[in-house]
Design a protein around this nucleic acid. Structure first.
Lengths: 236, 236
DNA sequence: ACCTGAACACCGTTCAAGT
DNA sequence: ACCTGAACACCGTTCAAGT
């Protein structure tokens, strides 16, 4: 019932404003709430007005990915290849933690956007500058895969049950059917004074896996590994 | 206009028939074509009839995942832990190759299904039976993550351009902006007699990454690694 | 009691009508 | 020429009406 006549007072729509509003919407509502219609509503605009600035939803999502990838720090020129890649990947991970929806959007993308290609090119450049062969770098990029964007390889995150008593009860029941899962999931609890339900240290797990790969790569590099010889990767 | 009165002649709906029809539909139409309405149509049934056999779409998808996970071979008792895990993961990968839609469905699942938990429990059991500590196994499971289900860490698969001339032209143009990407992507072409556009050997890349991880794990195991000491993972 | 058609509250996008 | 409302062809699911 309030006067609603100053509608045209709004700042004019630009692609940038559309993208920023979309990021904000996804950040605090999740990716499922980001629809063209809802985004338009958020901007105080009729749905079709968006199509003046983005060709379609797919292009909108591409724009969002580019914004997130743009948040990844540039490489530190003072570090060696392993340190530089490591630091960059951890920066990418922090960007993904700020925008958790970005992971699924990137995975659903049919083709890489220019920003994604540029970042990939830069990471490859770091390996090559560090002396890794083009051949090894090729396989290394496959092995790291989307982890270079800070993706974790986890499947399900810990469903957060906050009540310790409830969690203990669940664990006991689960242990009868899946004893190994429970033993491993609660392993940290035995040796620490910590409360039940502390959960995993995601940062530690990410770095553990990352270092496992980077150190394995370093070992192959120093051994002069080549896929043409296809010698075993392993110890001995 | 043809007689359509023998409608009730159809085999009666069962949960099993619903799930199998859904797998078939997703297998040859992709996951996007699998809607409740389309599935009902495929079964010659009114959409609401499905809800007698699955509570909702989420439960339908859970059922599909369980079918796919059920295709993974049991562990070979004659192998050591590394061989057994390796063979199992490669079997999981073959299941995923048969049902490419399963990956996205599993990633969108909120909670693991019983079959997923059972498989996970079994893989953990193999590590523990092989003598790995509960502590190391915990971190190892995180590091392998969804790769134990045959997931690849890739982000975008090679967009298949079949025409070699077109591909060469694209590469040349791309090389001006992303030289490292092009150098690495075409690395296999230099040393082989192969035609341009041969693409990557996905099987080799998958096993390369898997062995990098398994061998790194083996090394930690043999060194008596423990997260409590948090010694570096690397080569001294 | 069982089954099911219409309806609800959404989508992304097209397109023609209005200014 | 520009903007936009109605419409189209979909969703998953609720619910009341019909048998």
């Amino acid at each position: 019932m309030a006067q609603q006549t100053e509608r045209p007072r709004r700042a004019p729509l630009t692609t940038d404003r559309v993208l920023r509003a979309a990021v904000a919407l996804a950040d605090d509502g999740g990716i499922d709430v980001l629809s063209m219609r809802r985004l338009a509503q958020e901007l105080g605009v009729v749905p079709m007005a968006l199509y003046k600035h983005v060709a379609n939803k797919e292009q909108l999502l591409d724009g969002l990915v580019d914004l997130v990838v743009g948040e990844i720090d540039p490489p530190d020129p003072d570090l060696d290849w392993k340190g530089a890649v490591r630091q960059r990947i951890l920066s990418a991970r922090r960007a993904l933690l700020r925008h958790p929806w970005a992971r699924r959007v990137m995975e659903a993308q049919a083709a890489p956007t220019p920003a994604v290609l540029a970042y990939t090119d830069s990471v490859i450049g770091t390996f090559l500058a560090g002396g890794l062969s083009v051949d090894l770098t090729h396989h290394v990029m496959h092995a790291l895969g989307s982890r270079i964007f800070g993706f974790t390889q986890e499947l399900h995150q810990d469903g957060h049950v906050s009540d310790p008593a409830e969690l203990a009860a669940m664990a006991q029941q689960l242990a009868e059917v899946f004893p190994n899962v429970v033993a491993v999931a609660t392993s940290r609890l035995h040796d620490e004074e910590s409360v039940v339900g502390a959960g995993c240290d995601d940062e530690f797990e990410f770095e553990f896996a990352l270092d496992l790969l980077l150190d394995g790569i370093d070992r192959l590099h120093q051994a002069g590994w080549s896929s043409r010889r296809r010698q075993p990767v392993g110890p001995t």
